[in-house]
Design a protein around this nucleic acid. Structure first.
Length: 368
RNA sequence: GGGACCGUAGCGCAGUUGGUUAGCGCGUCUCCCUGUCACGGAGAAGGUCGCGGGUUCGAGUCCCGUCGGUCCCG
Protein backbone atom coordinates (compact mmCIF):
# COMPACT_ATOMS: atom_id res chain seq x y z
CA UNK A 1 0.00 0.00 0.00
CA UNK A 2 1.08 3.49 -0.72
CA UNK A 3 0.32 6.57 -2.68
CA UNK A 4 -1.25 5.94 -6.08
CA UNK A 5 1.14 7.59 -8.53
CA UNK A 6 -0.66 7.07 -11.80
CA UNK A 7 -3.85 5.87 -13.39
CA UNK A 8 -5.00 5.02 -16.88
CA UNK A 9 -8.37 6.16 -18.13
CA UNK A 10 -9.60 5.37 -21.64
CA UNK A 11 -6.08 4.64 -22.79
CA UNK A 12 -4.54 7.81 -21.40
CA UNK A 13 -2.12 7.84 -18.50
CA UNK A 14 -2.41 10.48 -15.82
CA UNK A 15 0.07 11.23 -13.10
CA UNK A 16 -0.82 11.99 -9.50
CA UNK A 17 -1.21 14.23 -7.72
CA UNK A 18 -3.09 16.33 -10.21
CA UNK A 19 -4.79 19.67 -9.89
CA UNK A 20 -7.78 20.45 -12.11
CA UNK A 21 -9.15 23.96 -12.48
CA UNK A 22 -12.91 24.31 -12.68
CA UNK A 23 -14.19 24.88 -16.18
CA UNK A 24 -17.72 24.88 -14.83
CA UNK A 25 -19.45 25.99 -18.00
CA UNK A 26 -16.94 24.33 -20.30
CA UNK A 27 -14.49 27.17 -19.89
CA UNK A 28 -12.05 28.04 -17.15
CA UNK A 29 -13.12 31.65 -16.88
CA UNK A 30 -11.10 34.04 -19.00
CA UNK A 31 -8.94 31.20 -20.38
CA UNK A 32 -9.08 29.06 -23.47
CA UNK A 33 -7.61 25.61 -23.87
CA UNK A 34 -4.29 26.94 -25.19
CA UNK A 35 -3.96 29.12 -22.09
CA UNK A 36 -4.55 26.08 -19.89
CA UNK A 37 -1.77 24.23 -21.68
CA UNK A 38 0.53 27.22 -21.27
CA UNK A 39 0.02 26.75 -17.53
CA UNK A 40 0.74 23.00 -17.80
CA UNK A 41 -2.81 22.12 -16.83
CA UNK A 42 -3.63 18.50 -17.65
CA UNK A 43 -7.32 18.35 -16.89
CA UNK A 44 -10.43 20.29 -15.96
CA UNK A 45 -13.66 19.81 -14.04
CA UNK A 46 -16.88 20.71 -15.80
CA UNK A 47 -20.30 20.92 -14.23
CA UNK A 48 -23.32 18.84 -15.14
CA UNK A 49 -25.85 21.20 -13.62
CA UNK A 50 -24.60 24.25 -15.47
CA UNK A 51 -24.03 22.52 -18.80
CA UNK A 52 -27.41 20.80 -18.92
CA UNK A 53 -29.11 24.18 -18.67
CA UNK A 54 -26.65 25.94 -20.95
CA UNK A 55 -25.97 25.01 -23.69
CA UNK A 56 -28.11 21.96 -22.91
CA UNK A 57 -27.67 18.28 -23.71
CA UNK A 58 -29.00 18.33 -27.31
CA UNK A 59 -26.30 20.79 -28.30
CA UNK A 60 -23.59 18.96 -26.40
CA UNK A 61 -24.64 15.78 -28.12
CA UNK A 62 -24.52 17.48 -31.51
CA UNK A 63 -21.06 18.91 -30.98
CA UNK A 64 -19.77 15.56 -29.74
CA UNK A 65 -19.20 16.25 -26.07
CA UNK A 66 -17.26 18.70 -23.96
CA UNK A 67 -13.80 17.83 -25.23
CA UNK A 68 -14.61 18.68 -28.81
CA UNK A 69 -16.78 21.59 -27.73
CA UNK A 70 -13.95 23.31 -25.88
CA UNK A 71 -11.13 21.89 -27.99
CA UNK A 72 -9.60 20.17 -25.00
CA UNK A 73 -7.82 16.82 -25.22
CA UNK A 74 -6.82 16.59 -21.57
CA UNK A 75 -8.60 14.93 -18.70
CA UNK A 76 -12.23 15.93 -18.13
CA UNK A 77 -14.00 15.25 -14.88
CA UNK A 78 -17.66 16.12 -14.66
CA UNK A 79 -19.14 17.12 -11.37
CA UNK A 80 -22.64 15.80 -10.80
CA UNK A 81 -24.21 19.14 -10.03
CA UNK A 82 -25.08 18.10 -6.50
CA UNK A 83 -22.97 20.77 -4.92
CA UNK A 84 -24.63 23.57 -6.86
CA UNK A 85 -28.16 22.31 -6.51
CA UNK A 86 -27.87 21.69 -2.81
CA UNK A 87 -25.99 24.80 -1.85
CA UNK A 88 -28.55 26.87 -3.75
CA UNK A 89 -31.60 25.11 -2.36
CA UNK A 90 -30.35 24.97 1.22
CA UNK A 91 -29.52 28.63 0.97
CA UNK A 92 -32.97 29.53 -0.35
CA UNK A 93 -35.88 27.12 -0.98
CA UNK A 94 -37.07 29.26 -3.87
CA UNK A 95 -34.36 27.56 -5.94
CA UNK A 96 -36.05 24.21 -5.69
CA UNK A 97 -36.93 21.22 -3.54
CA UNK A 98 -35.36 17.92 -2.67
CA UNK A 99 -36.92 14.52 -2.16
CA UNK A 100 -35.50 11.04 -2.03
CA UNK A 101 -36.68 10.48 -5.58
CA UNK A 102 -35.33 13.61 -7.20
CA UNK A 103 -34.30 17.22 -7.01
CA UNK A 104 -36.52 19.81 -8.62
CA UNK A 105 -34.88 23.10 -9.24
CA UNK A 106 -35.94 26.35 -10.77
CA UNK A 107 -33.51 28.28 -12.80
CA UNK A 108 -34.20 31.74 -14.02
CA UNK A 109 -31.90 33.50 -16.36
CA UNK A 110 -32.51 36.59 -18.45
CA UNK A 111 -36.12 36.79 -17.35
CA UNK A 112 -36.81 33.22 -18.38
CA UNK A 113 -37.91 30.75 -15.72
CA UNK A 114 -37.35 27.05 -16.20
CA UNK A 115 -37.98 23.99 -14.09
CA UNK A 116 -35.64 21.02 -14.07
CA UNK A 117 -36.07 17.55 -12.70
CA UNK A 118 -32.75 16.20 -11.62
CA UNK A 119 -32.25 12.59 -10.62
CA UNK A 120 -29.19 10.44 -10.04
CA UNK A 121 -29.98 8.68 -13.33
CA UNK A 122 -30.33 11.93 -15.22
CA UNK A 123 -27.03 13.21 -13.84
CA UNK A 124 -25.23 10.10 -15.09
CA UNK A 125 -26.90 10.25 -18.49
CA UNK A 126 -25.89 13.86 -18.97
CA UNK A 127 -22.34 13.10 -17.89
CA UNK A 128 -22.10 10.46 -20.59
CA UNK A 129 -23.26 13.04 -23.09
CA UNK A 130 -20.55 15.35 -21.81
CA UNK A 131 -18.09 12.58 -22.57
CA UNK A 132 -16.10 12.95 -19.40
CA UNK A 133 -13.36 10.66 -18.15
CA UNK A 134 -14.46 10.62 -14.54
CA UNK A 135 -18.15 10.72 -13.74
CA UNK A 136 -19.26 11.79 -10.28
CA UNK A 137 -22.33 10.35 -8.58
CA UNK A 138 -25.04 12.78 -7.57
CA UNK A 139 -24.74 13.27 -3.83
CA UNK A 140 -26.59 15.14 -1.11
CA UNK A 141 -24.40 17.94 0.15
CA UNK A 142 -25.55 19.03 3.61
CA UNK A 143 -25.46 22.71 4.47
CA UNK A 144 -22.53 23.93 6.53
CA UNK A 145 -24.53 24.28 9.74
CA UNK A 146 -26.46 21.00 9.40
CA UNK A 147 -27.12 19.09 12.63
CA UNK A 148 -26.24 15.45 13.01
CA UNK A 149 -29.74 14.23 12.13
CA UNK A 150 -29.70 16.12 8.87
CA UNK A 151 -26.23 14.92 8.03
CA UNK A 152 -27.31 11.33 8.72
CA UNK A 153 -30.14 11.76 6.21
CA UNK A 154 -27.74 13.23 3.67
CA UNK A 155 -25.46 10.23 4.08
CA UNK A 156 -28.38 7.85 3.65
CA UNK A 157 -29.52 9.64 0.52
CA UNK A 158 -25.99 9.87 -0.85
CA UNK A 159 -25.63 6.09 -0.53
CA UNK A 160 -29.02 5.41 -2.12
CA UNK A 161 -28.31 7.73 -4.97
CA UNK A 162 -24.84 6.31 -5.49
CA UNK A 163 -26.46 2.91 -5.90
CA UNK A 164 -28.84 4.30 -8.52
CA UNK A 165 -25.95 6.07 -10.23
CA UNK A 166 -24.01 2.86 -10.50
CA UNK A 167 -27.00 1.05 -12.01
CA UNK A 168 -27.51 3.79 -14.56
CA UNK A 169 -23.76 3.83 -15.22
CA UNK A 170 -23.87 0.10 -16.03
CA UNK A 171 -26.82 0.63 -18.37
CA UNK A 172 -25.01 3.38 -20.19
CA UNK A 173 -21.89 1.25 -20.61
CA UNK A 174 -23.97 -1.49 -22.10
CA UNK A 175 -25.98 0.65 -24.49
CA UNK A 176 -22.87 2.55 -25.56
CA UNK A 177 -20.92 -0.67 -25.90
CA UNK A 178 -18.10 0.52 -23.69
CA UNK A 179 -15.66 -1.91 -22.13
CA UNK A 180 -13.12 -1.54 -19.36
CA UNK A 181 -10.63 -0.06 -21.82
CA UNK A 182 -12.67 2.85 -23.11
CA UNK A 183 -15.12 3.50 -20.33
CA UNK A 184 -14.98 6.40 -17.92
CA UNK A 185 -14.47 5.98 -14.20
CA UNK A 186 -17.32 6.33 -11.74
CA UNK A 187 -16.58 8.21 -8.55
CA UNK A 188 -18.69 8.21 -5.39
CA UNK A 189 -18.62 11.02 -2.86
CA UNK A 190 -18.27 10.40 0.83
CA UNK A 191 -20.48 12.69 2.93
CA UNK A 192 -20.96 12.91 6.68
CA UNK A 193 -19.89 16.43 7.63
CA UNK A 194 -17.59 16.49 10.62
CA UNK A 195 -19.27 13.43 12.14
CA UNK A 196 -16.55 10.88 11.66
CA UNK A 197 -18.77 7.87 12.38
CA UNK A 198 -21.12 9.03 9.61
CA UNK A 199 -18.19 9.47 7.25
CA UNK A 200 -17.10 5.95 8.13
CA UNK A 201 -20.54 4.49 7.56
CA UNK A 202 -20.85 6.35 4.26
CA UNK A 203 -17.45 5.14 3.05
CA UNK A 204 -18.11 1.54 4.00
CA UNK A 205 -21.43 1.41 2.19
CA UNK A 206 -20.04 3.06 -0.92
CA UNK A 207 -17.06 0.72 -1.00
CA UNK A 208 -19.47 -2.18 -0.66
CA UNK A 209 -21.38 -0.99 -3.74
CA UNK A 210 -18.08 -0.63 -5.56
CA UNK A 211 -16.70 2.40 -7.37
CA UNK A 212 -13.62 3.30 -9.37
CA UNK A 213 -12.72 6.30 -7.26
CA UNK A 214 -13.85 8.15 -4.17
CA UNK A 215 -14.21 11.78 -3.25
CA UNK A 216 -14.26 13.88 -0.13
CA UNK A 217 -17.61 15.71 -0.12
CA UNK A 218 -18.84 18.79 1.62
CA UNK A 219 -17.03 21.99 2.34
CA UNK A 220 -13.30 21.68 2.93
CA UNK A 221 -13.41 24.78 5.16
CA UNK A 222 -15.32 25.11 8.40
CA UNK A 223 -17.40 28.11 9.40
CA UNK A 224 -14.38 29.78 10.94
CA UNK A 225 -12.55 29.44 7.66
CA UNK A 226 -10.20 26.75 8.89
CA UNK A 227 -9.19 23.82 6.73
CA UNK A 228 -10.99 20.71 8.01
CA UNK A 229 -7.73 18.86 8.54
CA UNK A 230 -9.05 16.21 10.89
CA UNK A 231 -12.06 15.26 8.77
CA UNK A 232 -10.15 15.32 5.49
CA UNK A 233 -7.44 13.14 6.90
CA UNK A 234 -9.90 10.70 8.39
CA UNK A 235 -11.87 10.42 5.15
CA UNK A 236 -8.72 9.86 3.08
CA UNK A 237 -7.92 6.98 5.42
CA UNK A 238 -11.31 5.42 4.71
CA UNK A 239 -10.71 5.29 0.97
CA UNK A 240 -8.97 2.33 -0.71
CA UNK A 241 -5.38 3.20 -1.56
CA UNK A 242 -5.44 1.56 -4.98
CA UNK A 243 -8.11 3.91 -6.29
CA UNK A 244 -7.97 7.65 -6.96
CA UNK A 245 -8.85 9.85 -3.98
CA UNK A 246 -10.39 13.15 -4.95
CA UNK A 247 -10.46 16.07 -2.49
CA UNK A 248 -13.31 18.04 -4.02
CA UNK A 249 -12.94 21.78 -3.75
CA UNK A 250 -9.42 21.77 -2.30
CA UNK A 251 -7.88 24.29 -2.09
CA UNK A 252 -5.07 26.80 -1.64
CA UNK A 253 -1.61 25.63 -2.77
CA UNK A 254 -0.85 24.88 0.86
CA UNK A 255 -4.12 22.96 1.29
CA UNK A 256 -3.17 20.83 -1.70
CA UNK A 257 0.18 20.01 -0.13
CA UNK A 258 -1.60 19.02 3.06
CA UNK A 259 -4.15 17.00 1.08
CA UNK A 260 -1.35 15.23 -0.76
CA UNK A 261 0.23 14.26 2.54
CA UNK A 262 -3.11 12.78 3.60
CA UNK A 263 -3.14 10.67 0.46
CA UNK A 264 -5.40 12.57 -1.91
CA UNK A 265 -4.56 12.29 -5.61
CA UNK A 266 -6.91 14.73 -7.32
CA UNK A 267 -7.76 18.30 -6.44
CA UNK A 268 -10.01 20.89 -7.99
CA UNK A 269 -10.64 24.41 -6.85
CA UNK A 270 -11.98 27.69 -8.15
CA UNK A 271 -9.56 29.68 -6.04
CA UNK A 272 -6.66 30.25 -8.44
CA UNK A 273 -8.88 31.45 -11.28
CA UNK A 274 -11.29 33.42 -9.11
CA UNK A 275 -8.45 34.87 -7.08
CA UNK A 276 -6.75 35.90 -10.29
CA UNK A 277 -9.81 37.80 -11.42
CA UNK A 278 -9.91 39.44 -8.00
CA UNK A 279 -6.30 40.51 -8.27
CA UNK A 280 -5.00 38.02 -5.72
CA UNK A 281 -1.98 36.19 -7.06
CA UNK A 282 -0.26 33.16 -5.62
CA UNK A 283 3.51 33.26 -5.67
CA UNK A 284 5.93 30.57 -4.61
CA UNK A 285 7.47 31.32 -1.22
CA UNK A 286 10.95 30.66 -2.58
CA UNK A 287 12.94 29.27 -5.47
CA UNK A 288 11.34 25.92 -6.34
CA UNK A 289 14.86 24.46 -6.74
CA UNK A 290 15.43 24.87 -3.01
CA UNK A 291 11.85 24.67 -1.73
CA UNK A 292 11.14 21.78 0.59
CA UNK A 293 7.56 21.46 -0.54
CA UNK A 294 6.53 19.05 2.19
CA UNK A 295 7.93 20.96 5.13
CA UNK A 296 8.04 24.65 4.25
CA UNK A 297 5.24 27.12 3.52
CA UNK A 298 4.86 26.91 -0.24
CA UNK A 299 3.27 30.19 -1.27
CA UNK A 300 2.26 33.75 -0.45
CA UNK A 301 -0.51 35.95 -1.72
CA UNK A 302 0.25 39.09 -3.65
CA UNK A 303 -2.48 41.68 -4.19
CA UNK A 304 -1.98 43.37 -7.54
CA UNK A 305 -4.27 46.28 -6.71
CA UNK A 306 -1.54 48.12 -4.85
CA UNK A 307 -0.32 51.51 -5.85
CA UNK A 308 3.25 50.34 -5.29
CA UNK A 309 3.03 48.20 -8.43
CA UNK A 310 2.39 51.17 -10.70
CA UNK A 311 6.06 51.44 -11.58
CA UNK A 312 7.15 47.88 -10.80
CA UNK A 313 8.77 46.54 -13.95
CA UNK A 314 9.53 43.14 -12.45
CA UNK A 315 7.51 39.97 -13.05
CA UNK A 316 4.76 38.82 -10.68
CA UNK A 317 7.16 36.25 -9.29
CA UNK A 318 10.87 35.97 -9.85
CA UNK A 319 10.58 32.20 -9.44
CA UNK A 320 7.83 31.71 -12.00
CA UNK A 321 8.29 30.43 -15.53
CA UNK A 322 4.70 31.10 -16.62
CA UNK A 323 3.72 32.86 -19.82
CA UNK A 324 2.70 35.98 -17.93
CA UNK A 325 5.84 36.27 -15.80
CA UNK A 326 8.04 35.67 -18.85
CA UNK A 327 6.39 38.41 -20.88
CA UNK A 328 4.73 41.03 -18.68
CA UNK A 329 5.49 43.22 -15.69
CA UNK A 330 3.64 43.89 -12.47
CA UNK A 331 3.16 47.45 -13.70
CA UNK A 332 1.43 46.25 -16.85
CA UNK A 333 -0.81 43.83 -14.99
CA UNK A 334 -1.65 46.51 -12.43
CA UNK A 335 -2.58 48.81 -15.28
CA UNK A 336 -4.76 46.21 -16.96
CA UNK A 337 -6.63 45.60 -13.72
CA UNK A 338 -7.05 49.31 -13.14
CA UNK A 339 -8.70 49.82 -16.50
CA UNK A 340 -10.78 46.68 -15.93
CA UNK A 341 -9.45 44.96 -18.98
CA UNK A 342 -10.39 41.27 -19.28
CA UNK A 343 -6.86 40.40 -20.30
CA UNK A 344 -5.82 41.17 -16.71
CA UNK A 345 -7.89 38.25 -15.43
CA UNK A 346 -6.52 36.03 -18.16
CA UNK A 347 -2.87 36.80 -17.55
CA UNK A 348 -3.33 36.56 -13.80
CA UNK A 349 -5.14 33.22 -14.15
CA UNK A 350 -2.37 31.83 -16.33
CA UNK A 351 0.09 32.77 -13.60
CA UNK A 352 -1.95 31.37 -10.71
CA UNK A 353 -2.55 28.09 -12.48
CA UNK A 354 1.14 27.75 -13.23
CA UNK A 355 1.89 28.25 -9.55
CA UNK A 356 -0.45 25.36 -8.83
CA UNK A 357 1.05 23.08 -11.46
CA UNK A 358 4.55 23.94 -10.26
CA UNK A 359 3.62 22.81 -6.76
CA UNK A 360 2.09 19.69 -8.26
CA UNK A 361 5.40 19.04 -10.05
CA UNK A 362 7.29 19.41 -6.78
CA UNK A 363 4.91 17.02 -5.06
CA UNK A 364 5.36 14.44 -7.83
CA UNK A 365 9.09 14.76 -7.47
CA UNK A 366 8.82 13.66 -3.84
CA UNK A 367 7.34 10.36 -5.03
CA UNK A 368 10.22 9.45 -7.31
C1' G B 1 -11.53 97.74 -18.92
C1' G B 2 -16.72 95.27 -18.42
C1' G B 3 -19.57 90.82 -17.49
C1' A B 4 -20.77 85.54 -16.28
C1' C B 5 -19.60 81.21 -13.79
C1' C B 6 -16.61 78.35 -10.46
C1' G B 7 -13.27 77.47 -5.91
C1' U B 8 -16.15 71.61 -0.59
C1' A B 9 -11.22 64.71 0.79
C1' G B 10 -5.63 62.95 -3.70
C1' C B 11 -9.14 63.71 -8.30
C1' G B 12 -14.25 64.67 -10.16
C1' C B 13 -18.53 66.41 -8.02
C1' A B 14 -23.65 66.77 -4.52
C1' G B 15 -25.15 69.88 -0.84
C1' U B 16 -32.65 71.40 -1.29
C1' U B 17 -36.15 78.20 1.09
C1' G B 18 -29.23 79.05 6.19
C1' G B 19 -30.54 74.14 11.19
C1' U B 20 -27.73 68.37 15.01
C1' U B 21 -21.16 64.60 14.30
C1' A B 22 -20.67 68.15 5.64
C1' G B 23 -22.32 63.65 1.54
C1' C B 24 -21.36 60.74 -3.27
C1' G B 25 -18.23 58.50 -7.16
C1' C B 26 -13.24 57.35 -8.30
C1' G B 27 -8.63 56.70 -5.97
C1' U B 28 -5.83 55.05 -1.41
C1' C B 29 -5.36 51.39 2.64
C1' U B 30 -7.22 46.70 5.27
C1' C B 31 -9.69 42.16 5.10
C1' C B 32 -12.55 38.09 2.52
C1' C B 33 -13.20 34.39 -1.64
C1' U B 34 -11.89 26.51 -1.36
C1' G B 35 -16.79 20.10 -6.09
C1' U B 36 -17.63 29.16 -9.50
C1' C B 37 -25.50 32.06 -9.83
C1' A B 38 -19.05 34.93 -8.18
C1' C B 39 -15.36 40.22 -14.13
C1' G B 40 -16.91 40.23 -7.12
C1' G B 41 -17.95 41.02 -1.30
C1' A B 42 -16.96 43.54 3.67
C1' G B 43 -14.65 47.54 6.15
C1' A B 44 -11.31 51.86 7.23
C1' A B 45 -8.72 56.30 6.67
C1' G B 46 -9.09 61.05 4.53
C1' G B 47 -12.19 67.85 4.56
C1' U B 48 -10.71 74.14 10.09
C1' C B 49 -16.18 73.80 2.76
C1' G B 50 -10.03 79.38 -1.26
C1' C B 51 -8.97 83.49 2.40
C1' G B 52 -10.79 87.82 5.60
C1' G B 53 -14.80 90.35 7.51
C1' G B 54 -20.18 90.90 8.30
C1' U B 55 -25.66 89.53 9.04
C1' U B 56 -27.92 85.68 12.31
C1' C B 57 -29.42 82.04 18.15
C1' G B 58 -26.99 79.37 14.03
C1' A B 59 -23.36 80.22 7.54
C1' G B 60 -20.64 75.34 2.84
C1' U B 61 -25.43 77.96 2.00
C1' C B 62 -26.98 85.18 2.59
C1' C B 63 -23.95 90.14 2.20
C1' C B 64 -19.13 92.85 1.47
C1' G B 65 -14.12 92.51 0.37
C1' U B 66 -9.99 89.76 -1.42
C1' C B 67 -7.11 85.94 -4.00
C1' G B 68 -7.10 82.07 -7.72
C1' G B 69 -9.25 79.72 -12.11
C1' U B 70 -12.53 79.19 -16.59
C1' C B 71 -15.36 81.48 -20.32
C1' C B 72 -17.67 85.68 -22.93
C1' C B 73 -17.73 90.98 -24.62
C1' G B 74 -14.50 95.04 -25.69
Amino acid sequence: MGYLKTTTIRGNDYNFPIYLPDATRAVARSLDSEDLKKSKIEGVVVNTYHLMSEPGTPILETVGGVKKFMNWDGLVVSDSGGFQVFSLIYQDPKFGKISDAEVTFYKSSKGEKRKYHFTPERSIQVQFVLGSDIIICLDDVPSVNAKEDQVRLSVKRTIEWAKRCKEEFAKQLQSRKMDHKNRPLLLAVIQGGDFLHLREECAQELIKIGFDAFGYGGFPMDEQGNFRTETLKFVAGLMPDDKPKFALGVGTPQDIVEGFKMGYNIFDCVLPTRDARHQRLSVLSKDPKTLDVLHEPVFNYLNMNREKFVKDSGPISEYCDCFTCQNYSRAYLHHLFKIEEFTAGRLASIHNLRTYTKIIELLRATLA
